[in-house]
């Protein structure tokens, strides 16, 4: 079980990291600071959204396991 949790954290950090670096290299070095730093807001919102979805999926799987046991 702890393995799974660790994997989720790893995956989350990798995701966030890849988003950030992909944006930085694709355009110019000031991408995150362009357009009134709106991309920072976007990164925050997407992090929350992805975090919530990962959480929902874990709950979904936990309930699924209990259902299978019955």
């Amino acid at each position: 079980m702890p393995n799974r949790i660790r994997n989720f954290f790893l995956l989350t950090f990798l995701l966030i990291g890849s988003i950030a670096t992909a944006q930085d290299t694709n355009v110019n070095e000031g991408f995150m600071r362009s357009n009134g730093k709106i991309y920072v807001v976007l990164a925050v919102c997407l992090t929350i959204l992805i975090g919530l979805f990962i959480y929902l999926f874990t709950i979904d799987r936990k309930i699924g396991k209990i259902e299978d046991k019955q």
Partner: peptide, 9 residues
């Protein structure tokens, strides 16, 4: 929802 947040902003 990812599309909504990205395009929406």
């Amino acid at each position: 929802l990812v599309y909504t947040f990205t395009a929406g902003l």
